[in-house]
Design a protein around this nucleic acid. Sequence first.
DNA 1: GCCTGGATTATC
DNA 2: ATAATCCAGGCA
Length: 198
Amino acid sequence: MISPTIAELRAGRLPAAWFQRDVRVVARALLGCALVHGRRAGVIVETEAYRGPEDLASHARFGPTKRAAVMFGRGGVAYVYLCYGVHEMFNIVTGTEGGGEAVLIRAVAPLVGLGEDPKVGRGPGKVTRALALSRAQDRRDLATGGLFVAPAVRVPRGAIAVGPRVGVAFAGAWAAAPLRFWWRDHPSVSATRAVKPT
DNA sequence: GCCTGGATTATC
DNA sequence: ATAATCCAGGCA
């Protein structure tokens, strides 16, 4: 298949309402979609759902603090934060006002302007580096402007895997919840801890 | 104000 | 295995 152009992707931009659904539904549906920023785009192949204030792995567990307040707004907006003082993490707020939900984009495969190396967007810190995303994009609306999501590739039937989230061992019982979604066996996925098919 | 510890990655 | 690097959140 020929890679689409940025203009073609822009024509398929997903509207705010698309994100205003249960975070697990959105996290799964994002697989195969393009994350576009300026002249660059990657196919989302790995995501994690963060469910709200009761989710002890989520920044929303402290309520609508200065940093996490955006998570309690309406779906379809970016939430970008600095992790370990080193890496920027890109999330998309989901659900409706007050929900506190968001999806972390953990890996993208090269689509436009990212070269050929499947490792370039493998891991959440590398996603932001590859797509030139930073806290400058925090709270940006994905419904307008040069940062958006659009359908791009159909994920083969049965190729979506589900399992526990990465790096949240501190979250007690929530650490084991099956809230990580990825395209099974895709070379751009960050970890290969296999679990169950869908 | 001070202290603790990360939704990670590259390198030792 | 561990450094890098900084800021949010908790407590005094």
